[in-house]
């Protein structure tokens, strides 16, 4: 019954909050508006915006060393999570049956294990740095910790559910997934969508000036 609830009404409610919330946040950015830039550009802004969206996936060559830890841990976490969310067998099945009506070949078990290890290691390393580094301690907020904590619990219960194949564990996992979806639009997790805009705005402005950002 608990499983039916978290995979039924709560899931639909969480998905609705997620979709409406994300759309609302993105609309809020659009509503804030931007004045037309009247300066004469050296190069067009739009291609610069697109270029910067992709360019910032790697740090500037000169900044590779200071960014190394965050880049490695960040990619381990994000790529690991991406593989888990989209290619874990139960997720593919869930997406096929409940969301899209079609699925794809799931990742083999060893890929799942590898991705999970990367995701956990990355997330924990980033969180440890947040707790230990004086700069990160100064700038971190409760939201940063809640987002990390919820993501960790979702990943942890997901692994437990997969290994134990128990309905209660699956329900627990779904409960935290639902909570994460509800929390998402109100949190920094929104960066998963807004980074495209923030990189794009900067890329466009700098491209107008003739600078590759």
């Amino acid at each position: 019954m608990f499983l039916d609830f978290v995979e039924g009404p709560l899931w639909y409610a969480a998905a609705a909050v997620f979709l409406v919330g994300v759309a609302w946040r993105l609309a809020a950015i659009a509503r804030a508006g931007l004045k037309e830039d009247l300066s004469v550009p050296r190069t067009a802004g739009a291609p610069g915006a697109v270029a910067t969206v992709f360019r910032r996936f790697l740090p500037h060559r000169e900044f590779m060393r200071p960014a190394a830890f965050q880049m490695v841990a960040g990619y381990a976490f994000h790529i690991g999570l991406f593989v888990l969310v989209l290619f874990a067998a139960p997720h593919v099945e869930f997406i096929e049956q409940r969301i899209l009506g079609f699925g794809w070949t799931p990742a083999p078990h060893w890929v799942f294990l590898l991705a999970a290890n990367f995701a956990f290691a990355g997330l924990l390393l980033l969180w440890l740095r947040r707790m230990l580094d004086p700069v990160l301690r100064r700038i971190s907020t409760l939201d940063d910790h809640i987002g990390t904590g919820l993501t960790f619990v979702v990943m942890f219960t997901g692994c437990m559910a997969l290994f134990e194949s128990h309905d209660f564990l699956r329900a627990l996992h779904m409960l935290f997934v639902d909570l994460l979806l509800i929390y998402f639009p109100f949190s920094r997790l929104m960066h998963a969508f807004t980074f495209i805009l923030s990189r794009g705005f900067t890329g466009a402005t700098m491209a107008r000036k003739g600078v590759s950002a």
């Binding site: 946040r25 809020a28 950015i29 659009a30 804030a32 508006g33 931007l34 004045k35 900044f63 200071p66 960014a67 965050q70 960040g74 947040r130 580094d133 700069v135 990160l136 700038i139 971190s140 907020t141 940063d144 920094r188 929104m190 960066h191 807004t194 980074f195 805009l197 923030s198 705005f201 900067t202 402005t205």
Partner: peptide
Amino acid sequence: LMDARIVSYFSSCVHCGLCAEA
């Protein structure tokens, strides 16, 4: 002054602290 750029910037910041090193 809270324009779309500023709102998107604050929405995106994940408090990674890399800007300190720059």
